[in-house]
Design a protein around this nucleic acid. Structure first.
Length: 868
RNA sequence: GCCGGAGUGCUCAAACUGGUAAAGAGGAUCGACUCAAAAUCGAUUGUCCUUCGGGACUUGUGGGUUCGACUCCCACCUCCGGCACCA
């Protein structure tokens, strides 16, 4: 079937009646032909403001898909991303926009480097081989890209500017070097950003990460936490779940910082709490095992050894085990006490691993009555549980008796913490704050603390600064030099790029492979000229992809990262398309970059992507595709077999692109079948009808009118489905319906001038409408029947006169049940519709002998008679 | 546990603002063409009952609002995604 023998092909041609001799739908040849034309003519190239060919009369539109990481060959996910993006790009071009649609490669990264360790092949060579495969595939898919803007993030001409941005951030104090506890992946032998650790495992390779204390480079993304949250308002259309994911990741919480005095060491320990209203319920105090003061506190107490053991044990326990749900709370007393600032009460201190050093201050006040975790700890260590906030009903019921209220609350809580938090609760056992509701109490207690310098209102974030150092080879070198005299010295921008040196051994050793390139490492201090050493870490590859959309706009600029005019004209990206797996990492980093670069004054775009489309994942046999499962689908193979048009159209047809879908080989065949059907139809129409005989006014009635009406219905439907709905599946179904209708009516229309014109018009329209999904076939059919290039034609507009018809099928219901459909005039009055409805025999059978108690008329739609 | 999203024929799905449930595709069955098969063109295809005119039922389950509910409300079940000792 896929590669027919000669006999089969010959017989198929003979058997194909009216079709031209010796021809059949051959996507390979047809697609090649159009690709050569587009390539030779640079059809999808678009120039920047200032260029002679630049067309200033059109509004701009930046359509962008997430750039691929080039490894092996593109997979079905890529096919989907670029099929969806290309449909949008085509549609908008024909709607009169000046569309830029570029492509590049996220070319630095670990897979190529790991391959180098295994085979000795330079990562650059492996990467460029993959890039060649990707480029060749994208061309075979017929994606309408401006290839003059192509870039790879591994090219010195690109990473030179990545380094430049690093230096700009450094200058502004947004890039800094600091020793901190960091996450280390033992398999990839590098540190990772928080975002790249999932449940204590390396996001890339899945191995368990370790904590280490290292000096590393960070970007100060936490400075932007509030703006990253607030500027969601600047976005036009982002999926709600992506916004929610980022919001959760940033994890802003409001509360207070409260200082607890420790007299023995004469220290104050600050804690962060979101519930200052529960301060009077704090019955103990807990510190994280990593807290720097823990050992000092335990020193000299009877618990010293136990604390030491506990801290060591905690260090050995993986983050994953520590976070495990069903684990019992563990901890050790410190043998010290702190003073609760609101009531002067001295409460015992503990060290326990349920308190995390990474969040807040690494120490907490424990309020077991109102926090589930503290409650569990209190149970295990038999510590007092004091209820200080109770529901208003209990408070009122106790008639102002705090002991009674607390007792009732304890019973109501049934052995758990009471954690509600509304203005329908009252404070008890809280001194002068008794009786206040909880939001009010938060305000008053925070103010009370502030007046006495014991605390203040505070905001805390889950978000950490972005750790960008990587102890690996295949990335952009961090452009910094360490001088014995001058310390940390940035490489002057006129000395960029700091080129990645050639090395022999890529194997990770715990320090960057670059450290072995002695000639490269030892250098002159740009400041004092003395001997200095280069930074040997490279940058996280997410840095590369945080600004590539800017470089596309001015990709060959040797003077600057981008020209202001180009970026001002094209930015922001009007439609960004990609997988939801980048919801946090890439999308948040790119947002941060735009804000930081705008603050630095080199950009004027607070948000990079105004509209985001997150496509669903394609599965196979219900499972995520993976090489290990052996359930992958190779786009190259599909394209070889049925053509790029069929592959692309099928992917858009399998369901709404936002949703995922299960790959089905028979489904692709079905779409291929449809495209072949349209192709055959076009050859027949070309033989049987004359070109140029335009409709010249549609006939009032009859099949020619019906067919024209169907064509205009399809125009309307496809247009509305593509934008703003991105419901490509129903758009394609509408074109299928149109083609089916042509097949149904063509034989009775041939020969009649109005009929011929209608068939030709309808077939051209089908080609025009399928073009965003199947650009090769769309171009081919359109050219055959019309002589024109479809991409140069404006997107068709539905004629309202043909969308409306003078009659419609009136639905008649009795008691809400469908009983008949009768032909009614579009202009008929309610009275006339009712009469028509009652005139129906089938309706009469259901209303005779009964009383009509209500008549509902929806003009243009239905009549419902309610009988008793 | 918390926050999202989704449950519709044999399968993928459609139904946009509360108004004909199942468009389109796949699969299956039948017919035309053929010596035959493939390809192609066409017909049928939610379930049950039927005196063949029709009738009853049907969108995860149970209830509600309405002349009318896949659509709105309440409760529950299942699946998918995200977050999760975040103080």
């Amino acid at each position: 079937m896929t590669s027919p023998g000669q006999d089969d092909a010959a017989q198929a041609e003979r058997g194909s009646g009216a079709e031209a001799e010796g021809e059949r739908y051959d996507p390979r040849e047809l697609e090649r032909r159009w690709q050569l034309i587009w390539e030779a003519e640079g059809t999808w190239e678009v120039s920047n403001p200032g260029a002679p060919e630049f067309d200033a009369s059109k509004p701009k539109n930046y359509v962008l898909e997430m750039l691929p990481y080039p490894s092996g060959e593109p997979h079905v996910g890529h096919l989907k991303t670029y099929s969806v993006g290309d449909a949008i790009a085509h549609f908008r071009r024909r709607r009169g926009f000046n569309v830029v649609h570029p492509m590049g490669y996220d070319a630095f990264g670990l897979p190529a480097e790991n391959n180098a360790i295994k085979t000795g092949e330079h990562p650059r060579e492996a990467t460029e081989k993959s890039i060649a495969v990707f480029r060749e595939q994208f061309k075979r898919w017929g994606i309408s890209l401006d290839w003059t803007r192509e870039l790879g993030t591994h090219e010195p001409a690109y990473y030179r500017w990545t380094q430049w941005i690093f230096l700009k951030l450094f200058e502004k104090g947004l890039a800094y070097r600091e020793e901190a506890p960091v996450q280390w992946c033992p398999v990839d032998a590098t540190v990772l950003a928080n975002e790249q650790v999932i449940d204590g495992h390396c996001e890339r390779c899945g191995s368990l990460v370790e904590q280490r204390r290292l000096e590393q480079w960070f970007f100060r993304i936490t400075d932007y936490a509030d703006r990253l949250l607030a500027d969601f308002d600047l976005l036009e259309s982002w999926p709600e779940n992506v916004i929610t994911m980022q919001r959760n990741w940033i994890g802003r919480s409001e509360g207070a910082e409260v200082v607890f005095r420790q007299d023995d060491l004469d220290l104050g320990f600050t804690v962060f709490t979101t519930r200052p209203d529960t301060l009077f319920g704090a019955t103990f105090f807990v510190m994280a095992p990593e807290h720097p003061d823990v050992l000092r506190l335990a020193e000299g107490t009877e618990h010293e050894q136990a604390v030491r053991d506990y801290v060591n044990e905690a260090a050995r326990t993986s983050t994953e085990d520590r976070a495990s749900e069903e684990r019992q709370k563990t901890g050790v007393p410190l043998g010290r006490e702190v003073t609760n600032p609101v009531n002067g009460e001295r409460i015992p201190m503990f060290v326990a691993d349920y308190v995390l050093m990474e969040y807040g201050t690494g120490a907490i006040m424990a309020v077991p009555a109102h926090d589930q975790r503290d409650f569990e700890f209190a149970k295990a260590f038999e510590l007092p549980v004091r209820y200080v906030v109770v529901p208003a009903a209990i408070y009122d019921g106790a008639g102002g008796d705090p002991a009674k209220a607390a007792e009732t609350a304890r019973e109501a809580a049934e052995g758990a913490a009471f954690v509600e938090h509304s203005d329908d609760e009252r404070l008890i056992d809280s001194g002068e704050f008794d009786g206040l509701n909880s939001p009010e109490a938060i305000e008053r207690i925070t103010a009370w603390l502030g007046e006495r310098d014991l605390g203040e209102a505070a905001v805390n974030y889950r978000l950490r600064d972005w750790l960008v150092s990587r102890q690996r080879y295949w990335g952009a070198p961090i452009p910094i030099v360490y001088c014995d005299q001058c310390g940390i010295v940035p490489v002057p921008t006129d000395q960029l790029p700091v080129l990645l040196p050639e090395i022999e051994d890529y194997a990770p050793s715990g320090r960057s492979p670059l450290a072995a390139a002695e000639d490269w490492v030892s250098t002159e201090c740009p400041n004092c000229g003395g001997s200095a050493r280069r930074e040997t870490d490279t940058m996280d590859t997410f840095v590369d992809s945080s600004w590539y959309f800017l470089r596309y706009l001015d990709p060959r600029n040797d003077e600057q990262a981008w020209g202001r005019d180009a970026v001002e004209y094209w930015m922001p990206v009007d439609q960004y398309i990609g997988g939801v797996e980048h919801a946090i990492l890439h999308l948040m980093y790119a947002r941060f970059f735009c804000k930081a670069l705008s603050d630095i004054g080199v950009l004027d775009a607070q948000e990079p992507f105004t509209n985001l489309f997150a496509q669903g994942m394609i599965t196979r046999d219900g499972a995520k595709m993976s090489k290990s499962k052996g359930n992958t689908v190779s786009p190259a193979e599909i394209v070889d077999r049925v053509g790029a048009d069929a592959a692309r159209t099928y992917i858009c047809f399998m369901g709404p692109p936002v949703k995922g879908g299960d790959w089905n080989d028979q489904g692709v065949e079905g779409v291929h079948h449809f495209l072949a059907r349209l192709w055959r139809l076009s050859r027949e129409v070309d033989e049987r009808t004359e070109p140029g005989a335009g409709p010249g006014g549609a006939p009032e009635h009859g099949p020619a009118r019906d067919l024209l009406a169907k064509a205009h219905w399809a125009i309307d439907k496809v247009t509305r489905d593509i934008e703003p709905r991105f419901q490509f599946n129903t758009a394609i179904a509408a074109v299928m319906e149109l083609v089916n209708e042509i097949y149904r009516l063509k034989d009775e229309l041939y020969g009649d001038p109005a009929g011929d014109a209608a068939v030709r018009f309808a077939t051209c329209t089908a080609a025009s409408l399928i073009f965003p999904f199947a650009p090769h076939l769309g171009s081919d059919v359109y050219e055959l029947l019309n002589g024109e290039r479809v991409w140069e034609q404006p997107w068709p507009e539905a004629d309202p006169g043909l969308l409306a018809s003078d009659t419609f099928p009136l639905v008649v219901q009795v008691n809400g049940k469908l009983r008949d459909r009768v032909e009614a005039g579009s202009g008929a009055s309610e009275q006339e519709l009712l009469e028509l409805a009652r005139a129906s025999d089938r309706v009469r059978a259901h209303i005779d002998g009964k009383q009509v108690v209500k008549e509902i008329v929806v003009p243009g739609k239905l009549v419902n008679l309610v009988v008793r």
